[in-house]
Simulated assay, not measured.
Amino acid sequence: MSNIDTLIEGLPELNISLEPKEIDEFRLYKDLLKEWNEKINITAIKEDSEIDIKHFLDSLTIFNTDKIKDNIKIIDIGTGGGFPGIPIKIKNKTTQVVLLDSLNKRIKFLKEVIDKLNLKDIKAIHGRAEEFGSDKEYREQFDIAVSRAVAPLNILLEYSLPFVRKGGYFISMKGPQIYDEIEDAKKALKILGGEIEEKFEVKLPFSDITHVLVVIKKIKQTPTKYPRKAGKPKQTPL
Rank of each mutant, 00 (worst) to 15 (best):
residue 128 R to K: 12
residue 182 I to D: 04
residue 211 H to T: 13
residue 158 E to I: 09
residue 169 Y to H: 15
residue 147 S to A: 12
residue 146 V to R: 04
residue 140 E to A: 12
residue 190 K to P: 03
residue 221 Q to R: 15
residue 144 I to D: 12
residue 225 K to P: 08
residue 208 D to L: 01
residue 150 V to S: 11
residue 226 Y to N: 08
residue 218 K to G: 03
residue 195 E to A: 13
residue 219 I to T: 15
residue 151 A to N: 08
residue 127 G to P: 10
residue 190 K to C: 04
residue 144 I to H: 13
residue 204 L to Y: 10
residue 184 D to K: 15
residue 141 Q to K: 15
residue 181 E to F: 05
residue 171 I to S: 03
residue 199 K to C: 02
residue 202 V to N: 13
residue 172 S to K: 06
residue 118 N to R: 14
residue 140 E to T: 09
residue 195 E to C: 02
residue 214 V to N: 08
residue 170 F to M: 06
residue 157 L to G: 09
residue 184 D to G: 01
residue 216 I to N: 01
residue 138 Y to H: 11
residue 203 K to W: 03
residue 130 E to Y: 06
residue 158 E to W: 06
residue 223 P to S: 05
residue 224 T to F: 14
residue 190 K to G: 03
residue 131 E to L: 00
residue 211 H to Y: 13
residue 168 G to C: 08
residue 180 D to G: 13
residue 169 Y to E: 09
residue 232 K to W: 04
residue 148 R to Q: 01
residue 127 G to S: 06
residue 134 S to W: 00
residue 207 S to C: 03
residue 139 R to E: 02
residue 140 E to D: 07
residue 222 T to W: 05
residue 132 F to T: 03
residue 129 A to Q: 08
residue 210 T to A: 06
residue 157 L to V: 06
residue 139 R to K: 00
residue 189 L to Y: 15
residue 189 L to C: 14
residue 180 D to M: 07
residue 220 K to M: 08
residue 137 E to S: 14
residue 206 F to G: 10
residue 154 N to I: 10
residue 230 A to N: 07
residue 161 L to H: 02
residue 228 R to A: 03
residue 135 D to S: 00
residue 124 A to N: 10
residue 218 K to E: 09
residue 171 I to L: 14
residue 162 P to A: 00
residue 159 Y to N: 05
residue 162 P to M: 08
residue 191 I to K: 13
residue 191 I to Q: 11
residue 163 F to D: 09
residue 206 F to D: 02
residue 225 K to R: 14
residue 160 S to E: 00
residue 179 Y to I: 15
residue 201 E to R: 15
residue 225 K to G: 01
residue 156 L to E: 05
residue 186 K to V: 08
residue 162 P to G: 03
residue 181 E to C: 11
residue 215 V to Q: 11
residue 206 F to H: 10
residue 135 D to C: 00
residue 184 D to V: 09
residue 163 F to S: 07
residue 232 K to T: 12
residue 221 Q to K: 15
residue 157 L to N: 04
residue 121 D to Y: 02
residue 120 K to N: 14
residue 227 P to L: 05
residue 194 G to T: 03
residue 168 G to H: 02
residue 168 G to P: 14
residue 121 D to Q: 13
residue 148 R to A: 05
residue 169 Y to C: 00
residue 122 I to F: 09
residue 192 L to K: 12
residue 131 E to N: 11
residue 191 I to S: 07
residue 158 E to R: 07
residue 118 N to W: 02
residue 228 R to S: 08
residue 205 P to F: 13
residue 230 A to Y: 05
residue 179 Y to V: 14
residue 135 D to W: 00
